[in-house]
Design a protein around this nucleic acid. Structure first.
Length: 273
DNA sequence: CACGAGACCTGTTCGC
DNA sequence: TGCGAACAGGTCTCGT
């Protein structure tokens, strides 16, 4: 389930709580249980379990598609990849059927990292910049100007969709929001970045921000059985709407494969380059 | 630098 | 009903 809006929604729910749970701000971790060792990327699962004990949650946030949990003695970075989710509850047993790592807190709450496909990863780092410094700018950060965006975009000789998915170019966009943003900006996914005009570049950045904000407002998209939080899936214009009418012009939405990812666009609104 | 393919994984849905 | 293929929100690595 995880692109920027979904990760943002999950991070917020860790602070505000889920249902009857109050959230983990200020709480201390009493224990971690690791049931799929490869989920712990760094350090080893054994050292992870030892180091995490007794640490207090100082802050919870998001950077790119990482949930960031600052602890009294280090930083947890959690990447949900394709099918990860973070669930809060009060059970002593694992929450859900695909719990890979779970944390218990001093008030009895459990935070479970559930991940059917096992692609998700968790790091416990003294310096999170080790990972985060490789990432491009946050699209919703107002200090990212349209001029700067254009200056980064223009020299690149890549297809727009591939660039939007490149986390070192711009952070947090995934397959859904890339397709939706390109449609909103009336740009074909195969267009070379170097051929984009300044006004098209401006439109692209504005569209990226629009679709991400709409996603956050709707608490993300719930596409399959994994994540049930949001309802942006009911408002897709092109993503997974192959053959259905483009909401802007009525032309059937087309699907191509680009970099092994399904790519959806309106052949009329987004003319081929 | 850019691209494509394969790996990592499990579960659901679709076509025959 | 059964069964294999296709597909799924991501990212890393390797070969060209």
């Amino acid at each position: 389930m995880p692109e920027l809006p979904e990760v943002e929604s999950v991070a917020r729910s860790l602070v505000s709580g889920q249902g009857v749970t109050p959230g983990i701000a200020g709480r201390s971790i009493t224990k971690a249980v690791v049931s799929w060792a490869r989920t712990i990327a760094e350090p080893s699962a054994q050292i992870f379990r030892r180091r995490i004990r007794g640490q207090q949650v100082v802050a919870v946030g998001r950077r790119a598609k990482f949930v960031r949990i600052d602890l009294s003695g280090g930083t947890l970075l959690i990447h949900l990849r394709m099918s990860g989710d973070l669930i809060l509850g009060f059970s002593n047993k694992a929450l859900g059927t695909h719990s890979r790592v779970r944390f218990y807190f001093d008030d009895g709450q459990q935070l479970s990292f559930n991940d059917p496909r096992k692609f998700g990863r968790i790091w416990l780092l003294a310096d999170p910049e080790k990972l985060l410094s490789k990432l491009g700018p946050e699209p919703l950060d107002t200090s990212l100007s349209s001029l700067h965006f254009y200056e980064q975009l223009h020299p690149r000789r890549r297809q727009l969709k591939a660039l939007l998915l490149d986390q070192s170019f711009i952070a947090g966009i995934g397959n859904i929001y890339a397709d939706e943003a390109l449609h909103a900006a009336k740009l074909h996914p195969l267009t070379l970045a170097s051929l984009i005009s300044r006004s098209q570049s401006n439109a692209l950045l504005a569209s990226i921000r629009e679709v991400l904000k709409e996603g956050i407002r709707r608490n993300g998209a719930s596409i399959d059985w994994v994540y049930q939080g949001g309802d942006f899936q009911n408002h897709f214009r092109v993503y997974q709407r192959t053959g259905e009418a483009c909401p802007r012009c009525g032309t059937p939405v087309e699907r191509i494969v680009l970099g092994q990812r399904g790519t959806h666009f309106c052949p009329n609104c987004q003319p081929a380059p």
